[in-house]
């Protein structure tokens, strides 16, 4: 029982990381139906900005995260303007391939500029604290990640459901032409979507850097891919879906390692995902609307 509860905590903290990245993924998809494969790499850039603002500027973790979020928000808007906007009216496969190209560009430009070696995040940036509650070990880093994932999800949900910008986003998502007729600036709305999505990725990147102590130019690939799966699993385009998908994937992986064999972790975890999607193709929280795709 004790081990089970410990594994549940392990799963939740791993799931929170997937959920954090999945939030940005699902938001961009929800608005412009683009699977932004560069999302994981924007996260990596955010982690590097955080790393350098701590090591070079000596800022604390909160300031580092704000720097990273601002830098990546700008990067996200620039990427959208240069790479995705010219393709907005072409086929979706063209936009998808451009996203993959952008992802490779970010990875190898970073390798070119900073070298392929991993960099060690200073341990002093976020000193580890451990709490033992009834034999269960939990660290301040676990709490920090789980709480910030939930808080960011609530803020995001609020922006989309309650603000004017959010209303514009939803309008663009439902019918772009009609939104234009209603006086909504589509370009501006999509730019804001990218800015928010990329800032979320940056926050996730800094947290991952802190959590695992290292940053490297290819660190975005695997978490990015798993976050994408988490977003699809929860129902892509839905903010709570990203959260649920992230936690389900994290707990699934943890339990396969903990109670099955770690040698088959990814095989079993992804096998279960395929099964879920066969039964419920729109994801756990998705509704069968039968439109679009």
């Amino acid at each position: 029982m004790l081990e089970f509860s410990q594994q549940l905590i392990n799963g939740l903290s791993l799931g929170a990381i997937y959920a954090l990245i999945a939030l940005g993924y699902t938001m961009v998809y929800g608005i412009i139906l683009l699977i932004n494969f560069a999302h994981g790499d924007i996260m990596m850039v955010g982690a590097f900005v955080g790393f350098y603002s701590i090591t070079l500027l000596g800022s604390n973790i909160v300031a580092a995260m704000i720097f990273a979020m601002i830098a990546c928000a700008i990067l996200g808007v620039v990427i959208e303007k240069i790479a995705y906007r010219p393709l907005r009216n072409s086929t979706r496969i063209a936009a998808l391939i451009t996203a993959i190209g952008m992802s490779l560009f970010l990875e190898y430009a970073t390798i070119f500029l900073l070298g392929p070696q991993q960099k060690v995040f200073p341990q002093s940036a976020f000193p580890l604290q451990q709490y033992e509650i009834m034999g269960l070990l939990i660290t301040n880093k676990d709490i920090f990640i789980i709480v910030s994932a939930v808080v960011l999800m609530i803020i995001l949900q609020f922006i989309i459901k309650q603000t004017k910008t959010g209303k514009a986003m939803r309008a663009v998502s439902v019918d772009r032409e009609a939104a234009v007729l209603m006086g909504i600036s589509v370009d501006k709305t999509i730019s804001i979507t990218f800015a928010i999505g990329s800032a979320l990725a940056a926050a996730a990147g800094v947290m991952i850097g802190v959590y695992y102590n290292t940053v490297n130019p290819l660190m975005g690939i695997i978490p990015g891919l798993k976050a994408f799966v988490a977003a699809v699993l929860g129902g892509i385009g839905l903010i709570p879906g990203a959260m649920v998908g992230g936690f389900v994937l994290g707990i699934l992986e943890t339990f396969v390692s903990g109670y099955g064999s770690s040698l088959y972790r990814d095989a079993v975890a992804f096998g279960v995902l395929i099964l879920i999607l066969l039964i419920k193709p729109t994801g756990l929280l998705g509704k069968n609307t039968g439109e679009k795709v």
Partner: peptide
């Protein structure tokens, strides 16, 4: 891989 806690718990 960066997260080993599940297997380490085991």
């Amino acid at each position: 891989d960066r997260d080993f806690k599940a297997t380490l718990t085991k």
